[in-house]
């Protein structure tokens, strides 16, 4: 039940309806320049190599931003969109460091700042069974909304039927272990400024590989340290008893668990 977008850059005519629709539905200022993602621009058209490239959150299948959020403010809804609970966020901005696509933006000028990014119209539309605003308004049919698997099939069909019109790559199929937003392009994605990210590799797994070893590490190091503490302490007490600085009784008083061994050997 993962739903997402298929954005076909060969079909995009660069009209900008999606940008305006996004701003309307999310109540963002309509007149701000749309040249880069920022707190008030969740999607914009990037002019590259003669094409217009719709930029937005990729909605990863296993999003780095959600895995790193210490309070779970950023999370993936069961339907696919990666959404944000502003009442939980404490503003550590780790999501911005972790996102391999560099998407989340911050309200730097606010005194109660929030992280801002496309939420695939989850709250306003997708939750109610409607298409995201950008997909609903696109006059060129460049933004398709649906089940991710259907979108992948559709993308493959286009690549098969019109191989000359596209580079043979569905961006988002394998990037960062797969994203809900997929792109087709007539030009290599590297030339369009799409970031090079790890393929077939889910980012949260990188830190989880470390975190999952922690409990074992704590147990082993705890046992080791307690052992060393007991051993060196016992040796110290025994040395003092031997030097005649302590009587056995005093040693027992000082540290019963240590002196157990010391006492026996004295006897």
């Amino acid at each position: 039940m993962t739903r997402g977008l298929l954005i076909d850059l060969a079909r995009c005519r660069g009209c900008g309806s999606c940008v305006t629709a996004c701003r309307e539905i999310n109540r963002l200022p309509l007149d701000a320049p749309a040249e880069r993602l920022d707190a008030r621009t969740w999607t914009f058209l990037d002019h590259r190599a003669g094409l217009t490239v719709k930029r937005q959150c990729m909605h990863c299948l296993d999003p780095a931003c959600a895995s790193v959020c210490p309070v779970g403010a950023m999370h993936r809804s069961p339907d696919g969109p990666v959404v944000y609970d502003e009442t939980l966020c404490m503003g550590c901005r780790y999501c911005m460091i972790a996102c391999p696509f560099g998407v989340p933006r911050y309200e730097w000028d606010s005194r109660e700042p929030r992280v801002r990014k496309c939420i695939l119209c989850w709250e306003q539309r997708v939750r109610n069974g409607e298409k995201p605003a950008c997909a609903a308004v696109c006059p060129a049919g460049a933004i398709a909304f649906g089940e991710r698997q259907d979108l992948v099939d559709r993308a493959r069909q286009r690549l098969r039927e019109r191989p000359d019109d596209y580079v043979d790559h569905i961006y988002g199929l394998r990037e960062a272990g797969g994203t809900s937003v997929l792109y087709l392009s007539p030009v290599p994605f590297a030339a369009l400024g799409f970031p090079r990210v790890q393929e077939d590799r889910r980012y949260p797994g990188m830190t989880w590989a470390i975190l999952e070893k922690m409990p074992a590490g704590w147990t082993v190091s705890g046992a080791l340290l307690v052992g060393l503490w007991w051993l060196t302490g016992r040796r110290e007490v025994m040395a003092r008893v031997e030097r005649g600085e302590l009587s056995v009784d005093e040693a027992m008083q000082l540290a019963p668990p240590l002196a157990g061994g010391a006492g026996r050997e004295e006897e």
Binding site: S67, V68, C69, P70, V71, G72, A73, L88, C89, M90, G91, C92, R93, Y94, Y106, E112, P113, R114, P204, T207, W208, I210, L211
Partner: peptide, 18 residues
């Protein structure tokens, strides 16, 4: 960004997060 919420990780947990 929201310093008054510094206590949030104590209540709202995400053990996957470093």
């Amino acid at each position: 960004g929201r310093p008054t919420r510094i206590w949030h990780p104590l209540v709202f947990w995400n053990p996957r997060s470093v």
